[in-house]
């Protein structure tokens, strides 16, 4: 992207070498202090007392229960938001209707709300004091301080990810191919499965991995609705908090290192998708100039 411009810059449009070195050095120092050292320290603290203790952290039944709950939560929340994201992107990117921009703004709303407030709203709806509290108690349904509340809070905080990735992508692609498919006699669903979905699959994957990372790592919102029952309603981040507050640092950082690993995988997949789409755009441009 920028490598070609760097080479071609004339003396008038770049800085003296010592300024370049100084600025690069400062930027790297800040990145080392705030990004690299914290990341490395998670793995260092986890392995501080050797592999044995590190591995032992994962045989603890409470840790295993936390891992399982985290996987279940993400497995429900991410597909729900995926279906919504595709539906919303289809409506917003393919049609012009009144209130379209209001809808787009409302989809971003969960990003603007503090995670703690996000948890609180479900307590106010489904908690013992909440709107549906008495009715739920009567029918012996538990949402708050139970798994459904955790899933709901996670759905809320990961709500916009897929939609906000797909809307600009589908707007940019336009609907020519879909129109062509319909003219050739394809049904609506055929058009969606064979034309739209293959066209958006990378953007979809991008949104899904970001939503998944947030779903597995969410702390504030889940903390409010979970009730912190060990082995029952603790996700990995909540389990990390408990271990850390009990001064079990190896255990806390061992569980944290799982999440840090997930973050690294997320970044790797994200970079790969960005690199791929940049390369495709480059190829498109070359084809366009050749014709």
């Amino acid at each position: 992207m920028s490598s070609t411009t760097t080479v071609n810059r004339s003396a008038a449009t770049t800085e003296a070498p010592w300024v370049r070195w100084l600025l690069t050095g400062l930027a790297l120092l800040f990145i080392a202090l705030f990004l690299i050292i914290p990341l490395v320290s998670v793995f260092f603290e986890a392995l501080r007392q050797g592999w044995g203790l590190f591995a032992a952290s994962f045989t603890d039944p409470d840790a295993l229960a936390a891992i399982k709950l985290t996987l279940i939560t993400a497995a429900i929340a991410v597909p729900l938001n995926l279906v919504f994201g595709v539906a919303a992107a289809w409506a917003i990117a393919r049609f012009r209707f009144k209130g379209r921009s209001v809808l787009t703004t409302l989809i971003d709303l969960p990003f603007a709300v503090s995670p703690v407030v996000a948890g609180l709203i479900y307590v106010l709806l489904f908690g013992a004091q909440g709107w549906f509290g008495p009715w739920l108690a009567e029918h012996d349904i538990k949402i708050i301080f139970a798994i459904p509340g955790i899933v709901l809070a996670t759905v809320f905080v990961t709500f916009p990810f897929v939609a906000r990735e797909l809307i600009p992508l589908m707007e940019a692609q336009g609907s020519d191919e879909e129109h062509a498919a319909l003219v050739l006699g394809a049904s609506g669903w055929q058009t969606f499965w064979r034309i739209t979905l293959p066209n958006i699959k990378w953007g979809l994957l991008y949104g899904v991995i970001l939503a998944n990372a947030r779903a597995m790592g969410e702390f504030g919102a889940v903390s409010v609705v979970s009730g912190h029952i060990r082995g029952m309603t603790n996700t990995i981040p909540l389990h990390v908090e408990i271990l850390y507050n009990e001064y079990n640092f190896v255990g806390a950082f061992a569980c944290a290192s799982l999440l840090a690993l997930l973050a690294l995988v997320t970044l790797a997949v994200k970079s790969f998708i960005e690199w791929r789409s940049a390369r495709l755009a480059e190829e498109d441009r070359r084809h366009a100039t050749e014709e």
Partner: peptide, 15 residues
């Protein structure tokens, strides 16, 4: 640079 978006906040907090 995107690490803070991907790293769970509790992990960043204890680190």
């Amino acid at each position: 640079v995107d690490l803070p978006f991907a790293l769970p906040t509790a992990v960043a907090g204890i680190a």
